[in-house]
């Protein structure tokens, strides 16, 4: 490929992302409002409410429950936000408004469309994660100097999940119950069984398996390592990063293929 074509092709992705971001900007207020209010509510309610019960008992891992919970909530918010931000536009693009078919009749390629949607979702996720992190910081939930690195870790989890959901949302042609199914069988179980609220090791082994395939657990482990002195051997750090990276790359690869198939039809 010549250099100039390469340039055009990468700009294509940016154009798609730009269109998405302009669209999101209309909802900027709601997005920002939710980004601030959600963590605040969860921290006060679960962190302090449930936390007071736990801290009064034996605590967890020698830190306050708030500190324990913070990186998990951060990663969870990143995953939720990025997933929403790929699922809805993808459904709209293929089905409700069929905008992707319009885009496809311009020089844009299917792969650029899928990447553009993904990129836009990441921009939104960065905003949410930064705000969330600031709220956590203000609540005094972040203890270590490396705590700011929890942001990229959470973002990474958001990217891994978004890539997979992008492929899935593009693959589904009948959306009737897609949202119910995704919520009930993917999002909520992941939120509840990824070592979010207590160490994964507390669950029976057969349930721990769920954590291993959950991007939330991998990001939470990294986040805990970065926000307080949670011991994590180097090899495990490597594994967590590798799993998230694999999910993201496989997800993006599959998305490009599915987009290609559906748009070429």
């Amino acid at each position: 490929m010549s250099n100039s074509i390469r340039k055009v092709s990468s700009f294509g992705t940016l154009h798609v992302a730009e269109a998405r971001i302009r669209n999101m900007a209309k909802w900027a207020f709601i997005i920002l409002f939710a980004a601030v209010i959600n963590p605040t509510l969860y921290l006060v309610s679960i962190g302090i409410g449930v936390g007071s019960l736990i801290d009064a008992n034996n605590g967890v891992e020698g830190v306050s429950y708030l500190t324990f919970l913070a990186p998990a909530l951060l990663a969870s918010a990143a995953i939720q936000g990025s997933s929403d931000e790929v699922i809805f536009p993808t459904m709209a693009g293929f089905k409700w408004e069929r905008t992707f078919f319009g885009m496809r009749s311009t020089p844009l390629t299917a792969r650029q469309i899928s990447l553009g949607i993904f990129l836009a979702a990441m921009v939104r996720t960065i905003v949410s994660v930064v705000i969330y992190w600031i709220v956590l910081y203000l609540f005094g939930a972040l203890e270590s100097d490396t705590a700011w690195l929890a942001m990229p870790a959470a973002l990474f989890a958001g990217a891994a999940m978004a890539a997979v959901m992008l492929a899935l949302a593009a693959k589904i042609e009948k959306e009737d119950f897609f949202f119910t199914i995704v919520g009930r069988f993917i999002m909520i179980p992941m939120f509840l069984f990824s070592g979010t609220f207590y160490p994964l090791s507390q669950m029976p082994v057969f349930l721990q398996f769920f954590g291993w395939i959950s991007p939330l657990w991998h990001a939470t482990e990294l986040g805990r390592y970065l926000t307080y002195d949670y011991p994590l051997p180097g090899i495990q750090i490597f594994i967590h990063i590798a799993v998230l990276a694999t999910m993201m790359l496989v997800g993006l690869f599959l998305s490009a293929r599915v987009f290609d198939n559906r748009l070429e039809k």
């Binding site: 736990i54 008992n57 034996n58 967890v60 429950y65």
Partner: peptide, 13 residues
């Protein structure tokens, strides 16, 4: 119920 009841339950007593 399963996640909170048993997981958090272990921390809470």
């Amino acid at each position: 119920l399963l996640s909170f009841g048993y997981g958090i339950g272990e921390l809470v007593g």
